[in-house]
Simulated scan of single mutants.
Amino acid sequence: MAAKITYTIQEELGDLSVASNGWKKQLTYTSWNNRDEKFDLRSWNPDHTAMTKGLTLTKDELLKLREILNNLDLDKY
Rank of each mutant, 00 (worst) to 15 (best):
S20N: 08
V18I: 13
T8W: 00
Q26P: 03
T28G: 09
T8I: 04
T28I: 06
Q26H: 04
R35Q: 15
Q10M: 08
T28A: 07
T8M: 01
E11N: 13
D36K: 14
K25R: 15
L16C: 05
W32G: 00
E12Y: 07
T8G: 00
Q10P: 00
K25I: 06
D15H: 08
L27R: 05
S20E: 13
R35F: 08
S17N: 12
N21W: 03
A19C: 01
T30S: 06
E11T: 11
S17A: 15
N34P: 01
I9K: 03
R35M: 14
E11I: 04
E12F: 09
D15G: 02
L16W: 07
L13K: 14
K24Y: 02
T30H: 07
A19D: 10
Q26R: 13
S20F: 02
Q26W: 02
T28F: 05
S31I: 03
R35T: 13
T28L: 10
L13R: 12
L27T: 03
Y29D: 09
E11S: 11
T8F: 03
Q26D: 08
L13S: 07
Q26A: 06
Y7S: 12
T30D: 09
G22F: 00
K25Y: 07
I9C: 04
S17F: 03
L16A: 12
W23N: 10
N34K: 12
K24E: 06
L13M: 12
K25V: 10
D36S: 15
G14F: 10
W32Y: 13
I9N: 08
T30C: 07
A19L: 04
S20Y: 02
D15W: 02
D15F: 02
